[in-house]
Design a protein around this nucleic acid. Structure first.
Lengths: 212, 212
DNA sequence: CAATACAGACCAACCAGTCGGTCTCTCAAA
DNA sequence: TTTGAGAGACCGACTGGTTGGTCTGTATTG
């Protein structure tokens, strides 16, 4: 039998996603994991710690991915594409985590909340940073207020957890393509967009464009 | 003394926003509203009904506003602006409602959930509809998949509830201006954007552009 | 023989909802 | 004008069920 701890994490995640953190009792988790109260409390201090662990694994992963994406490229145009693509793809891997994360984050106990908040802020700052860079280099339109634009992007992507399903009409990569396209069209200065070499700025050719 | 029912709604809303639906007991609501268990259950069948009422007043309002915005204009370009502006502004009026709505909507009892879902879907369909129209008239880029684009817009706006505060750096109208600008730049066909009469399509001049 | 991993009966706290009762206001009969 | 009956608004002690968490005991592993 594989690690009980992992098993508890997996099953509780499913349950939380369906019914919410408060809609699931420890007894239900225990039953679904084929274990007992003792088993559960051997691995977790409390139900709240379980919630924290779910939050933390996800946010840690996102932060790491985004950092990597950020470091690979130098130009802000490519940085933002890279970050967005990585960010969107995370929803394919961690959708249940993310759902629980955003639905129940204000039930986190203060001691846990602070740790999560720090990582979340780091991620946000990174996005802001890239936008600012792009405005300084002249790639992004300077008239857009950085904070509002940043939150628009974050919101757009984060909302994916509300509607994305792997069985849906579009794959996560296709969604990422469209999001990158939307954001670039919104951010890039008009002369960059209107030039026919818009494509030259793309990391990859988006799925919805034809090859000539 | 003003209506107790309204008083309960107001105070419970504040409490829910701070601590979440499950973080607040009926006794706390009752205490904060200067009433009693009896008073509460005289006006509401259950705590769940209270949650429903909060959801419903908000979603009903949004739907009404969007419908109005949709009917005033004929061109898709103006329709989408109008809808987005109305939609964004709602966050100024109903932020607590919306926070509770999005955080706790999966705790709604089935009988309530259906009613809410119907109205929410109607709103979503309206946005999809306008995008499709715009693509047919040639104003919006046809290569963007309608569903993904629609969800991107909805996500962008909906996320406002996570960060907007009336005391913030930007007013709700300024945020609305930026969002309209971002979305139009993303949607409009390049020849429409690059034409210097981009401004001609705007319902109003955004706050961040200079008058000449 | 430790030490770790798990089992499951048990408990104390909590919480939504109930229920018998009171207070006040209205309106019509006397 | 007085009375009194009825209805709606509100009170608050109480309850029955649930839930997170504990504790003692047992199996297994090294």
């Amino acid at each position: 039998m594989a690690g009980l701890r992992e098993s508890i994490l997996r099953t509780s995640l499913e349950l939380f996603e369906q019914k919410g953190f408060h809609g699931v009792t420890v007894n239900q988790i225990v039953a679904a994991s084929n274990t007992s109260k003792g088993g559960f409390y051997h691995h977790f201090q409390s139900k709240d710690e379980l919630l924290f662990v779910i939050h933390d694994t996800f946010i840690t992963y996102v932060l790491k991915e985004a950092n990597a994406a950020n470091e690979i490229h130098k130009s802000p145009i490519k940085k933002i594409q890279s970050i967005i693509k990585a960010f969107v793809k995370v929803f394919d891997l961690y959708k249940p985590h993310i759902s629980v994360f955003y639905q129940e984050s204000n039930y986190l106990k203060p001691e846990y909340e602070e740790q999560i908040k720090r990582k979340r802020d780091a991620f946000k700052q990174m996005v802001f940073q890239v936008i600012e860079e792009g405005q300084e280099t002249g790639d992004f339109r300077k008239e857009l207020p950085m904070e509002i634009t940043g939150m628009a992007i974050l919101g757009m992507v984060n909302w994916i957890y509300k509607w994305y399903t792997p069985k849906g009409k579009y794959t996560i990569d296709e969604i990422a393509d469209v999001y990158v396209d939307i954001i670039l069209h919104a951010l890039l200065t008009t002369n960059v967009v209107s030039e026919e070499n818009f494509q030259a700025h793309m990391l990859e050719r988006p799925f919805f464009t034809e090859k000539k």
